[in-house]
Amino acid sequence: MPNDTAILLIHSPDQPGLVHDVTGFIFAHGGNIVDLQQHIDPEENAFFMRVAWTLEKFTLDTEEIASRFAIIARRHQMRWKLRFASNRHRLALLVSKESHCLYDLLSRHESGELPVDIPLIISNHDLLRSASERFGIPFHHFPVTKDNKAEVEQQQLALLREHRIDTVVLARYMQIISAGFVEAYPDNIINIHHSFLPAFVGAKPYHQAYERGVKIIGATSHYVTADLDQGPIIHQDITRVTHEDSVRDLVRIGKDLEKNVLAGALWSHVTNKVLVYRNKTIVFA
């Protein structure tokens, strides 16, 4: 999508005239719509919409758009977010010991496939410093114990603010973050969990899957909430396994799922295609 593009994500009670008023606002100011998707949930009487338009001939300055659109939003009881394609997301990657998700995201970023800025990597272990250095990204090591965890989180949050981070990615960061940390980044902390949620929450999901003799394993990427592994799901995938697969096999097979699911969820997030509604998401194509 061109950099001179504005994007609106909207949800509201369903009612006549919503699409007309939104597209009419864009047309009235000279915008050219390049993408429009909508969804209606009849059980919730809820309307969801993503609309993107070019700003090349748009008659409002970017600073004016929000205040002018707010008039329409109030009329229809809309919850909405305005984004601009030119504003690249600034990511912090949080990791522990596992490297597969980190390397995958850094490779996608280096190749230009992931259009974001990554100013820093944070870890509670020092094992992945070499990976960070290989890609030229500053690495920050914060050893975490049960006694210093609250203090460390405050240090991490200060670092994130310093670097103007807007999205935190838990790329197999094996620490439970606090409610206070979550509140600092609502709907902007993305986790990869190595099971097909809601099955096998918490620690060692591959071991749990093996003990149950499952025939499929999966991975789930979701926004983080204060409730462990219960946040709104962005992306999931599965693959088949058999009785011949050991726990080690499940881990090996699952790592490919984890990488692709996290990358897919992150792509939807940074291209402004995810709309959170209650504890679910609408993910536009």
Rank of each mutant, 00 (worst) to 15 (best):
N3A: 14
A6D: 05
L8Q: 01
L9S: 11
L9A: 05
S12E: 02
Q15I: 00
D21T: 07
I26F: 11
D41W: 05
V51W: 02
A52K: 04
E56A: 10
E56H: 12
D61R: 12
T62M: 14
F69K: 01
A70N: 14
I71Q: 13
A73S: 12
R74H: 12
Q77C: 12
M78N: 03
W80Q: 06
F84K: 02
C101S: 15
L102A: 05
S107V: 04
R108A: 08
D117F: 03
I118G: 01
S132G: 13
H141L: 08
V144E: 08
T145A: 14
A150W: 08
Q154V: 03
Q156G: 01
A158T: 14
L159G: 07
R164C: 13
D166H: 13
T167L: 11
V169C: 05
Y173W: 10
Y173S: 02
I177G: 02
S178D: 05
P186M: 02
I189G: 05
I190D: 03
H193Y: 11
F196D: 01
V201Q: 10
A203F: 13
K204C: 09
H207G: 07
D227T: 08
L228C: 05
H235V: 06
Q236P: 13
D237K: 10
T239K: 04
R240M: 11
D249C: 08
L250D: 03
L257K: 02
A263P: 00
T271N: 11
K273F: 07
V274G: 04
